[in-house]
Amino acid sequence: MSADFNPNDPFALLRQFWQNATPPGAQPFLPPMSEEEIERRITELKVVEGWLTMNLGALAMQIKTLEMQKATLAALKPKSDG
């Protein structure tokens, strides 16, 4: 991984990609020139994938927690016999 990459900063990789973006008019998807560059990019993208997966899991857990709280409040709410 590059010296600028910090796994504790989840947006460092995205900033690095934007900073290293190809100039206008250039082909944006040129393949890396070496096996080392390919391996470095794969490793960095796997870190991002792991971070996104972790956040997706945390989001899903938060949604389930709120749904359980809502169900609990609904169950404890006195019913009116209107």
Results as ranks from 00 to 15, higher is better:
residue 4 D to S: 04
residue 7 P to S: 06
residue 7 P to A: 08
residue 9 D to T: 01
residue 10 P to F: 01
residue 11 F to N: 07
residue 12 A to M: 10
residue 13 L to W: 15
residue 14 L to F: 10
residue 15 R to N: 09
residue 16 Q to S: 05
residue 17 F to G: 03
residue 18 W to C: 06
residue 19 Q to A: 11
residue 21 A to R: 10
residue 21 A to H: 05
residue 23 P to T: 01
residue 24 P to E: 08
residue 25 G to K: 03
residue 27 Q to E: 14
residue 28 P to Y: 01
residue 28 P to W: 04
residue 29 F to K: 07
residue 31 P to F: 02
residue 31 P to S: 11
residue 33 M to K: 12
residue 34 S to C: 09
residue 34 S to W: 01
residue 36 E to M: 02
residue 36 E to D: 13
residue 36 E to V: 06
residue 37 E to Q: 15
residue 37 E to F: 03
residue 38 I to N: 09
residue 38 I to D: 09
residue 39 E to T: 11
residue 40 R to P: 01
residue 40 R to M: 13
residue 42 I to R: 15
residue 43 T to Y: 13
residue 43 T to A: 14
residue 43 T to L: 12
residue 43 T to S: 11
residue 45 L to F: 12
residue 46 K to V: 04
residue 47 V to R: 04
residue 48 V to G: 01
residue 49 E to Y: 13
residue 49 E to V: 14
residue 49 E to A: 15
residue 51 W to A: 14
residue 52 L to Q: 13
residue 53 T to K: 14
residue 53 T to Q: 15
residue 54 M to D: 15
residue 54 M to H: 14
residue 55 N to K: 15
residue 56 L to I: 11
residue 56 L to A: 14
residue 56 L to G: 11
residue 58 A to Q: 11
residue 59 L to Q: 12
residue 61 M to G: 07
residue 61 M to H: 09
residue 62 Q to R: 12
residue 64 K to M: 10
residue 64 K to Y: 01
residue 65 T to G: 02
residue 65 T to I: 05
residue 65 T to M: 09
residue 65 T to L: 06
residue 66 L to F: 04
residue 66 L to N: 03
residue 67 E to Y: 00
residue 69 Q to K: 11
residue 70 K to E: 13
residue 71 A to M: 12
residue 71 A to D: 09
residue 71 A to T: 06
residue 71 A to C: 02
residue 73 L to R: 14
residue 75 A to S: 13
residue 77 K to R: 15
residue 77 K to I: 00
residue 79 K to G: 00
residue 79 K to E: 06
residue 79 K to F: 01
residue 80 S to V: 12
residue 80 S to C: 02
residue 80 S to Y: 10
residue 82 G to P: 00
